[in-house]
Design a protein around this nucleic acid. Structure first.
Length: 271
DNA sequence: AAAAGCCCCTGGATGC
DNA sequence: TGCATCCAGGGGCTTT
């Protein structure tokens, strides 16, 4: 489910209300993608300093240490003073003096990992190869172009890989390529500088717009306060196979790239 | 080094 | 109603 916008909406929905809280207890359910990496009791009494984001990871700063949280495909967080009783798919819970943080994740592709610092080996392993942060000031078009120049794979798959630019998942890759007028199958390295500049702007625009709309709620995503997203209502191509392009009326097409569905307009994205 | 496949797991939609 | 099949927002790991 969650791409950068959903993770950022999640972050914004509890970063301020959890800051300053003290950890009272932790509870683990069924195994997530990776083990927590420490004895849960070890975290009791620590203070939550802040919640940051890197790509699709949430970084919950503790004093000391941090939790890396990934929502995988089906994860979502809740944070509230009082939550309903935990269900079968609630696999992580952290009770604090300011509320309870709970991870709901039916498919369990998500993870909560403790690291002593961002430089600890287990944190570096997850964060070390991540690409440029698209909504930050240092997402530079020249650097983006240089990164793409090294890649012969189709641009859609290079965007998804996350080592050139982070946070762009299956929905927003299709949407950004549509906005930039680029066919998802073109080799990344073959894109001219002006086209890369257009894609650079499109990625920023589509992600920022999606954050403003609360993300995309396709199935069950919501923020930690339970708010749904509405970006899916204005998707130009994602999930619209066979429907008319909102710009030119041509039928939206779909194809498989690396076991994932891609959507594009054959007329607006000619090459 | 980079690309392509394979998995991890559950549940909802679709088709027979 | 039951059962099989396919698909889903991700990404680390292994193999070419």
């Amino acid at each position: 489910m969650p791409e950068l916008p959903e993770v950022e909406v999640t972050r914004l929905s509890f970063a301020d209300t959890i800051a300053g809280a003290k950890v009272l207890s932790l509870r683990l359910g069924k195994a997530l993608r990776w083990p927590l990496g420490c004895v849960p009791e070890q975290l009791i009494g620590r203070t939550v300093l802040a919640v940051r984001r890197r790509g699709k990871y949430l970084l919950i700063d503790l004093a000391p240490g941090l939790l890396l949280v990934h929502l995988g495909m089906s994860g979502s967080l809740r944070f509230a003073r009082h939550l309903p009783p935990a269900g079968a798919h609630d696999h992580f819970e952290m009770v604090t003096t300011q509320g309870t943080l709970r991870l709901h994740d039916p498919r369990r592709f998500g993870a909560v990992v403790y690291a002593d610092s961002e430089d600890a080996p287990n944190a570096r392993k997850l964060l070390g190869k991540l690409g440029l942060e698209p909504l930050s000031a240092d997402f530079d078009a020249r650097q983006f172009h240089a990164g793409l120049q090294r890649r012969k794979a189709p641009i859609k798959q290079v965007l998804l890989a996350g080592d050139v630019v982070v946070g762009v998942g299956n929905i927003y890759a299709s949407e950004a390529l549509f906005m930039a007028g680029i066919r998802p199958t073109v080799r990344a390295a073959s894109l001219s500088r002006p086209r890369v500049a257009k894609l650079h702007a499109a990625i920023r625009e589509v992600l920022a717009r999606a954050v403003a709309k609360g993300g995309s709620t396709l199935r069950d995503f919501s923020s930690t306060t339970g708010e749904n997203g509405y970006f899916q209502l204005e998707a130009m191509v994602y999930g619209r196979a066979g429907q008319p392009c909102r710009v030119c009326g041509a039928a939206i097409k779909t194809l498989r790239q690396g076991q994932r569905s891609t959507f594009y307009c054959p007329a607006c994205q000619k090459a």
